[in-house]
């Protein structure tokens, strides 16, 4: 166990520069600078207090029961000194914090506004053009303001990489803003306890280029107005389902074909059992592909599990699309 711990510690130390997550914004950098300063003065203070304690403990270790000790009741100058120095330090970091907090909480004008609603247990981002998404997609290099609301209980929108957190409160709006200057996907956690699946209330904040953002917004907006089956067809393309599953012939690509799949009462699985390809079968196969593997594939499915990746509406649209492949 000891070796295991040492080994793991080494791994952890090697990643030491990533103790704080990637800095996705300028504010994240300024928070980290303040944090680094706090770490240093904390370390110095601990060395003084703990070091002093250890030094005295060793130096003045009891030699005999009759040791004579000094009789020192107090020292006013020393006491004033160690009251005033901490006070000055505390007020200094308070003021520094205030400055950063001011930037953090001053909402920029002309920011891109996105409404984000928390409900047990998912986030929904809604854009001005009516697009709704379970992931928050934002353009890089632009001020973005999120207006938070909660449908049922408290949630908290937390992006570690942006050092940002704000509770979403039922019955009122709260907000936060950021200016992402790094492309990539960042975790969004729910940080305020909200019940059973609190720890599963995770989504992605995707920072993309302005062009990608505009394109995404247009596509999503077109998709949302299409009839169900056509929307399913779009998702089938964008989620790259089409690269493994053929839709116009029984031919096998990487995975089984979905052509004429719906309603088949004779789908043979790996263990020989036969199932009917109804709505629930297809749903399960999308969300958890390991559950039922078709004979001739496997032993493990290479398909990723889409649990938590697709919204309820998207899964239904996909099923409608597959129904129509005759």
């Amino acid at each position: 166990m000891l070796l295991w711990i040492l080994q793991k510690l080494t791994v952890v130390m090697a990643q030491a520069d990533s103790f704080m997550p990637t800095q996705g914004t300028e504010i994240a950098k300024s928070v980290d600078n303040l944090y680094a300063f706090l770490l240093v003065i904390s370390l110095v203070s601990c060395v003084i207090v703990i070091g002093g304690m250890i030094y005295f403990a060793i130096k003045y270790k009891r030699k005999s029961a009759n040791d004579v000790t000094a009789y020192i009741t107090h020292d006013t100058r020393l006491e004033i000194l160690w009251s005033v120095i901490p006070l000055i330090l505390f007020l200094f970091v308070f003021a520094w914090g205030w400055v950063i907090y001011h930037d953090m909480r001053t909402m920029p004008k002309d920011a891109l506004e996105i409404h984000v609603t928390g409900k047990q247990w998912a986030w929904t981002a809604e854009y001005k053009n009516g697009v709704k998404s379970t992931e928050v997609v934002v353009p890089v290099g632009r001020d973005v303001r999120l207006i938070l609301a909660a449908e049922d209980v408290l949630h908290s929108f937390y992006v570690p990489s942006f050092r940002l957190k704000q509770d979403a409160v039922p019955g009122r709006y709260t907000n936060l803003w950021f200016h992402a200057d790094k492309l990539g996907d960042f975790h969004v956690f729910c940080a305020e306890y909200c019940g059973t699946q609190h720890s599963g209330m995770i989504t992605k904040l995707r920072v993309v280029t302005q062009e990608e953002f505009d394109q995404w917004l247009t596509t999503e907006s077109e998709v949302s107005t299409l009839p169900m089956a056509q929307r399913g067809a779009k998702i089938f393309q964008t989620r790259a389902c089409a690269s493994c599953h053929s839709v116009d012939s029984p031919a096998v690509k990487v995975g089984p074909s979905v052509y004429k799949l719906f309603g088949d009462t004779n789908v043979e699985l790996l263990d020989g059992t036969k199932v009917t390809a109804d709505e629930n079968y297809i749903r399960e196969s999308i969300l958890n592909s390991q559950a039922k593997i078709v004979k001739g594939f496997g032993p493990r499915s290479a398909m990723p599990a889409f649990q938590g990746q697709l919204s309820e509406v998207e899964v239904t649209a996909l099923i409608e699309y597959i129904k129509g492949l005759k």
Binding site: S30, V31, L34, Y35, F94, W96, G97, I100, P160, R163
Partner: peptide, 8 residues
């Protein structure tokens, strides 16, 4: 107690 650090 330093607000922006606490926000994280």
């Amino acid at each position: 107690a330093v607000i922006p650090v606490d926000v994280h």
